[in-house]
């Protein structure tokens, strides 16, 4: 019950801040939309005309997942940095719920709230490109949930680094491009990437949304890889975060910015 109360408090806070910083939120959405329009135009003018439709669909799914990955993985790093800068990180660390639980609830809250933005962006880009993807929620949701868990793990690793290093803006900017690489590269080109945090999930969702693959057509082996990735990366991420928190408490880094 206490965990639900914690989640409710953090969801409300994230919603309020999103509302208070509305111009910032709208600017972020606009930037992403413009980026998509740029990619779409590129395909229209210099892409192979015979593969134009598929390429456009490919770009829509990839860029939506890039946005999601940035929201989940990068955002938590910025959250830690901002909390340290504001002076509230120590207050969070003093909660008897534990910092990691607060961070999990923050991740869940921001992911849920950003989901609405993602849906708007998805339909806006489909409308712009006049390419309608297969939004089969029954097939997408289980894949998405498992993919998100592994993303959370990666997010925890970034948060752990942020607790110790704090001024990691440059790293987070580079990470944006790494995340872009991981979401844009198809598994057929680099099969080993299936064991990276969320590449397998994005690939499966691409299959569902572009090729119309149904849940029953996805093999247990694929789900197995997704599940193992989810458990391994989340556990690794959380362990790394707790380790970094301990280091920060030993070196007195929680309040330093």
């Amino acid at each position: 019950m206490q965990l639900l109360n914690l989640l409710r408090a953090n969801t409300r806070k994230e919603y309020l801040e999103l509302k208070r910083y509305l111009p910032n939120t709208l600017a972020m959405m606009f930037t992403f939309y413009i980026l998509f329009v740029g990619m779409f135009m590129g395909i229209q003018f210099i892409g192979d005309p015979s593969a134009q439709d598929v390429n456009t669909q490919f770009v829509i799914v990839n860029y939506i997942f890039w946005f999601l990955a940035m929201m989940v993985v990068n955002d938590i790093g910025f959250v830690v940095m901002n909390e340290a800068m504001r002076g509230t990180l120590e207050q969070l660390c003093m909660s008897p719920m534990g910092l990691w639980r607060i961070m999990v609830s923050r991740l869940l809250a921001t992911t849920t709230l950003n989901f609405f933005i993602i849906i708007v962006l998805l339909y806006l880009s489909m409308l712009t490109a006049d390419q309608w993807l297969n939004v089969d929620l029954v097939a997408i949701m289980p894949i998405l949930i498992l993919t998100l868990i592994s993303m959370f793990g990666l997010g925890f690793m970034v948060a752990g680094i942020s607790i110790i290093v704090k001024q990691i803006q440059a790293f987070l900017q580079i990470l944006q491009f790494i995340l872009a690489g991981l979401t844009f590269v198809p598994l057929s080109v680099a099969p080993a990437l299936a064991y990276f945090p969320f590449v397998k999930g994005v690939d499966l969702i691409r299959d569902v949304m572009i090729n119309g693959t149904t849940l029953s057509q996805i093999g247990w082996g694929d789900f197995g890889i997704l599940a193992v990735n989810a458990v391994v990366y989340f556990t690794l991420g959380l362990a790394f975060f707790l380790y970094c928190e301990r280091i920060a408490m030993k070196k007195g880094l929680l309040s330093h910015y």
Binding site: A9, R12, L92, S95, M97, I102
Partner: peptide, 8 residues
Amino acid sequence: DYFAGNRG
């Protein structure tokens, strides 16, 4: 509200 909720 937030800090109270944060303590569960």
